[in-house]
Design a protein around this nucleic acid. Structure first.
Length: 185
DNA sequence: CCTGTGATCGTCT
DNA sequence: GACGATCACAGGT
């Protein structure tokens, strides 16, 4: 089942865990989402926390669109916009389709290193700032609902503000996570 | 396994 | 002018 705008027009805290196990393709290349983090409007760690700016405009747009931003001046990071200026950061994929393309873009043949981390993931999928604001239910994006997956929960990675909340979700035991997660539900 | 560091630059203060 | 929702690599345990 394809994921459309209605799927994303909810709280990011509902949407983010449901994205674990979903399939994400960009121009037919991608795999299974295994790691996601939630960022909401009242969250000091969220880009939308201090209101709308040129960079975060997509977070204030309609749900079901991409928010892509540059990280550390080097990498790109992909988010799925949810309701109320919130977004889910897509942190890791289990590569399934287009392995050769991803390996070429990443410069490695190690499957584990193709998309384990937000910067690696965007590089593997060929995502850049040009994809910021694009709808997720139209090409080049394709998104399919998750099957049965055991979810693990933990603290978000790489932030200093609100670092304590358990808003990181992943597939328990997956070797494709950016970092391990403890089993929970 | 772990910790530390450099790269690199747009964004916001 | 400081600081990142990161990554790769180096070195020590």
């Amino acid at each position: 089942m394809k994921l459309g705008r209605s799927f994303f027009a909810r709280s990011v805290h509902e949407v983010a865990p449901e994205l674990v196990g979903a399939t994400l393709l960009v121009d037919g290349v991608g795999g299974k989402i295994v790691e996601v983090e939630a960022y909401d409007h009242e969250d000091p760690a969220a880009h939308s926390y201090r209101g709308r700016t040129a960079r975060n405009a997509s977070m204030f747009g309609p749900p079901g669109h991409a928010y892509v931003y540059r990280s550390y001046g080097i990498h790109w990071c992909l988010n799925f916009v949810c309701e109320a200026a919130s977004a889910a950061l897509i942190r890791a994929l289990e590569p399934t389709i287009g392995l050769e393309t991803m390996a070429k873009r990443r410069g490695t043949n190690e499957p584990r290193l193709l998309a384990a981390g937000p910067g690696r993931l965007t590089q593997a999928l060929g995502l850049t700032g040009e994809h910021d604001g694009l709808a997720l239910d139209r090409p080049p994006f394709a998104l399919y609902a998750a099957g049965e997956v055991e979810i693990a929960v933990g603290q978000r990675i790489g932030i200093t503000k609100a670092a304590d909340v358990p808003w990181r979700y992943g597939e328990a035991g997956s070797p494709y996570l950016s970092r391990p997660l403890k089993r929970s539900s």
